[in-house]
Write a protein that binds this DNA or RNA. Structure first.
Lengths: 149, 149
DNA sequence: ATAAACCCTTGAGCTAACTCCAGAGTCAAG
DNA sequence: CTTGACTCTGGAGTTAGCTCAAGGGTTTAT
């Protein structure tokens, strides 16, 4: 199996495959006489493993670690694997929290502004960014009654 | 006000301030005879604006756009500002969704594995990554009864 | 007057995960 | 036997947001 075949099967680019090789994730098990990379069925499955791990959020570094276990399963325990999954879950939960904080802050800004076609000179969003006074939900004024806009 | 004063007030690094200048976000309004950057009160407030925008998730590019409005408020409308906020909210919501998909997939993997101190040769997480069969919640086996572990 | 603390510019390096390019070699079909 | 599709290597470039280092000039305190 040549690199192009692999690429067609998995929908990644040739450059990506070669990049994964440089990253020690996937080394072809053989080379043709002309120097072409030749991939075995096992190599093919290894790529599947990598792409699935990627699809649940693991970084290439983390995938490298998972592959170390995969390559030598008998020397590792279930807990080693589960720990990696749980660690990743924690990481992602933290990222979600930060984004949710962003989202809530933005929602407050959003509520404070009528969004009308009126000069931005008194826009509550800009004011909040200038002065840093947290825009409270109570300050929201319905579009029709917004004094400023 | 010299760069060091600004830095102390805002808790960012000197390099960061100079980087923001290179990025056209914050230019000191004057220079001393010796060539030192001198920041006015308005410059100081501008930095506050930048840092607040950053704290709700805006990228430097997006902050640059917000500052264009801020610099010329009368030529813009409330809707221009609100649109930027809402656009950012959409962006962040998408990021959260992706991370939640990751999280759920990881949670399924996590549930499938007992996490015991037993060889990883039969670990359900690795199997799932190898074979790509989605690990269903029903397949979960309580720790005490896990046949494999 | 001199040392410490501060500031200057230029330019490189960092992380992550690719992506692209040039220039060359290989292989399969007609 | 030639054309076109495929592949090779090596190295540079991309994005975002800094961060650091070298080699110097400026201010301030003693």
């Amino acid at each position: 199996m040549k690199i192009g075949d692999l690429v067609k099967q998995h929908g990644v680019s040739v450059d990506t495959i070669r990049f994964y090789e440089k990253q020690q994730l996937l080394t072809p098990s053989a080379r043709s006489e002309g120097g072409y990379r030749l991939y075995s069925h096992a190599d093919n499955q290894r790529l599947s493993f990598i792409l699935r791990a990627k699809s649940v959020g693991f970084s290439l570094q983390q995938i490298r670690e998972l592959l170390q276990i995969e390559d030598n399963k008998s020397q590792w325990q279930c807990s080693d694997v589960k720990d990696k999954v749980q660690h990743k879950m924690t990481e992602i939960a933290e990222q979600i929290s930060e984004l949710q904080r962003f989202y809530q802050a933005l929602a407050q800004l959003d509520q404070a502004c009528c969004g009308g076609s009126v000069s931005a000179t008194e826009c509550s969003i800009l004011t909040a960014l200038e002065q840093g006074q947290p825009v409270l939900a109570e300050q929201h004024i319905p579009k029709q009654e917004c004094a400023k806009c």
